[in-house]
Write a protein that binds this DNA or RNA. Structure first.
Lengths: 113, 113
DNA sequence: TTCGCATATACCCATAACATTATATATCAC
DNA sequence: GTGATATATAATGTTATGGGTATATGCGAA
């Protein structure tokens, strides 16, 4: 870990939509399309955000058929996980975060993802 | 606290020089000129970085004569302090951080600040 | 193979961020 | 008041970032 990596890690989290993605994924893994409709952004935009988060290992992905599931990097010793924990726990009361979590739960109930 | 503030708070920390300033100030308060020589940047550049940090209340300042002392916002309940604590403690082993701390301590010994 | 769906990448544009130079403000000494 | 020092702000150029459209890739079904 060096200064550049720390800076990049903070920077990749310093974006409204990526913060919402991180918060949403703290609930459970999601496919790209779910995230598109959740944060109301086009698919390329979401793919790019996810690529940014993936490059810094904030999230990891797995392909299943033609779907790609994204989840948080849950390695408990990683700085990524530490920062995500800080964000998710410290700011869980943020209205958007609560709304998004609720939406993710509902979406999960409505259709198998 | 809203999403925008969280984003701005993360962003203001997501810069090499501002990270070094935060780490240096975790030791003790410093005047602008000290920071200029520490991070080897021009005075306007440092002033701007400090203004950014000040706007987000990551640091606070006090004027004494024609010197302006900067220190970390040490309100223990503030998100600012929480994030700074995370950065300073979690990444204290970073080479630049250790070098800067050493330099700050030496500088403090050499001349009264 | 071809089609259709999900996702990723390329390209372009608009805006934001950083560094530098020059200038302005503030305070002290005189 | 003037001059010197410390800091802040303004103006400018360059680079980085985020969003959109179009296109490419990957995979399953038939």
């Amino acid at each position: 870990m060096n200064l550049k990596t720390l800076r990049q890690l903070l920077k990749v989290c310093a974006d409204d939509k990526r913060l919402r993605i991180i918060n949403a994924l703290s609930n459970r893994e999601l496919v790209v399309k779910d995230i598109c409709s959740l944060i109301k952004s086009t698919q390329p935009t979401v793919s790019k955000h996810l690529a940014n988060l993936r490059m810094l290992r904030v999230v990891v992905d797995r392909r299943e058929g033609n779907l790609v599931y994204y989840r948080l990097n849950n390695n408990p010793d990683s700085p990524q996980r530490q920062l995500v924990d800080f964000i998710v726990s410290q700011f869980s009361q943020l209205v958007v975060f609560q709304e998004d979590k609720k939406e993710v739960r509902n979406r999960g109930r409505r259709k198998k993802i």
